[in-house]
Each structure stands twice: as structure tokens, then as C-alpha cells.
Computed example of a mutant assay.
Amino acid sequence: MKTNVLPNRLFADHQEPVGDRVNSYFKLDTIDVILKAFTPNELSVIRPCFGKMIDMYHKPAHSSKLAHFLLTWQLKTEKRHELWFIFGDENVTGEKLEVMLRHSKNISSELKVKYAYLLIVDGLLCRKSSGMKIPKDHAEMIRDLCYFLSFPWRQHCLEMTVQCIKSRSTNQLAQPTVAVQGFIHTVQMVLLEAVPAALMTMGEENGSESEEEECVMASTLKLDKLWNLDSSGQLYPL
């Protein structure tokens, strides 16, 4: 399917300047002066030319902040008398999908299912960065659920995760933190499957390894016990 390609943006996505207002010199109250000074019959004389302008007074008030927002969301256009603005087509992130699902009371079951599939794929299995946007091709794929579900997502996730892990240098791994794209939790799952004794290090309380790491699973690993298990060499099956 051929899609129209929009012109480039004036500012890159999420690089728009944070301004507060546009200083304009017109005053919509000018229309109020005319409305109060003219009778309906007198207004009918000027309506053929400026009727739309007169009716504007009863619409939402001018917002300088909104005007600034639109100016910074311009597209680059070549024609002299043409202005294009982007609004309402911002890419959706995994976080936004989570919000949608948390407030899904008025969302159809079919749409909730599609949101859930996208969240599992791009918010969990194939996540590349914090605040990652849902890829456009994935959003297009979800229109056809059968096609979306037939895609080898597990293989795609595995290849992404393994490739990212193997690309990390020893210097990177020696740093206090290291970024890994994909689903590195798979490595932990393999450990727990291959070394059943590691399950003995699990606790029942919710918690986290650090203040920055969120953990909402039913059980957590007690890492001090896991390190002791590793050094003990007692890795026999239960």
C-alpha cells in the first residue's frame, strides 16, 4: 500500500523548543465591539465579507501557548503560501499503551487485545530503549491479527537479544551499568531451568535490587544466597 510521505519536520521529534506563548497584536475583543455596536440587520451588511470572522468570537478563545506549540510542530514546505503542522500522529510508546490498558473501560475487547500484543512485543520482548516508540510497521501488522501472530516473534527477540549481548565489549561489561536490548530476562530463565537449586534462593516478598529498579513479581531472587550457591559448587538437581 502506497503511503504519502510528509515533508520533514522543522524540529526533530522531541527536540521542539519549550516555549510558553506567541506575542500577537490582534485582539479578538475587537469583534465584541462590532457585535455590540451593530444591530442584526446592520451585521447582515458586513456578513458576506467577514461573517466567518464575526462568528469566530463565539468559538474557543485564542491561546498563545497553543499557537507556539503549533509553530514548533511545523513541517518544512516549499510553497510560498502553504503551512503544514503535525498534530495527533505522534508515535505511541509502550508506556502509553500501558496507560491505555489501565484505563480500558471504554475500549473494545478487540482493540485491547491488539494493544496487549503490541505491548508484549515492543514493550517487553523487543524493547530497544527507554520510552521506545512502537515501530510503525508493527502497528500496521497488528491490523491483521492472523498475520501479526504468524510472525516469528520469539526468533526475532532471540536474535536481537543474543546479537546485543555478544556485541558488548569487556570494557562495557566492566562498567557499573550496561544497556542490553531485547529480553535479557531469558538468560535468567535459562539459569533457573538449568540449575534447579537456584530456586531455593527465591523469596516471597516483593522487592527490588535497587531503589531504581521496579519489581512487581510474586517472588524475588535473594542474590546473596545465589552468590553463595555459585561459590559452593552444590548445583545438583533438587
Results as ranks from 00 to 15, higher is better:
Lys2Asp: 14
Lys2Ile: 11
Val5Leu: 08
Phe11Glu: 11
Asp13Met: 04
Asp13Leu: 08
Glu16His: 00
Glu16Phe: 00
Pro17Ser: 05
Gly19Tyr: 03
Val22Gln: 00
Tyr25His: 05
Phe26Arg: 05
Asp29His: 07
Ile31Gln: 06
Asp32Pro: 05
Val33Pro: 11
Lys36Met: 04
Thr39Lys: 03
Pro40Val: 07
Glu42Tyr: 01
Val45Ile: 15
Pro48Lys: 01
Phe50Val: 13
Lys52Trp: 10
Asp55Glu: 12
Tyr57Phe: 13
Pro60Ser: 04
Ala61Glu: 15
His62Phe: 12
Lys65Trp: 15
Phe69Leu: 10
Leu70Cys: 01
Leu70Thr: 04
Gln74Pro: 02
Glu78Trp: 09
Leu83Met: 15
Trp84Glu: 15
Phe85Lys: 06
Phe87Gln: 14
Asp89Ser: 03
Asn91Gln: 13
Asn91Met: 14
Thr93Gly: 04
Glu95Met: 08
Glu95Lys: 06
Lys96Glu: 15
Val99Cys: 07
Lys105Asp: 05
Ser108Tyr: 00
Ser109Tyr: 03
Ser109Ala: 03
Glu110Met: 03
Glu110Asp: 09
Val121Gln: 11
Asp122Ser: 07
Leu125Cys: 00
Arg127Ala: 07
Ser129Ala: 10
Ser129Arg: 03
Ser130Val: 10
Met132Ala: 12
Lys133Glu: 15
Ile134Asp: 10
Ile134Lys: 00
Glu140Asn: 09
Glu140Leu: 11
Glu140Asp: 13
Asp144Trp: 04
Leu145Met: 09
Leu145Pro: 04
Leu145Gln: 11
Tyr147Arg: 09
Phe151Trp: 11
Arg154Val: 13
Gln155Arg: 04
His156Ile: 03
Cys157Asp: 15
Leu158Pro: 06
Glu159Ile: 01
Met160Ala: 07
Gln163His: 13
Ile165Pro: 00
Ser167Gln: 02
Arg168Lys: 02
Arg168Glu: 05
Asn171Leu: 12
Gln172Asp: 05
Leu173Asn: 01
Ala174Pro: 01
Pro176Arg: 00
Pro176Ile: 03
Pro176Trp: 06
Gln181Glu: 14
Gln181Thr: 04
His185Thr: 12
Thr186Trp: 14
Thr186Leu: 15
Thr186Asp: 15
Val187Cys: 07
Leu191Thr: 06
Glu193Ile: 13
Met200Lys: 11
Gly203Lys: 01
Asn206Glu: 14
Asn206Thr: 09
Gly207Phe: 02
Gly207Trp: 00
Gly207Gln: 01
Glu211His: 02
Glu214Ile: 10
Val216Lys: 01
Val216Gly: 03
Ala218Lys: 06
Thr220Ala: 06
Lys222Pro: 04
Lys225Trp: 06
Asn228Trp: 08
Ser231Gln: 14
Ser231Trp: 10
Ser232Val: 13
Ser232Phe: 08
Leu235Asn: 07
Leu238Phe: 09
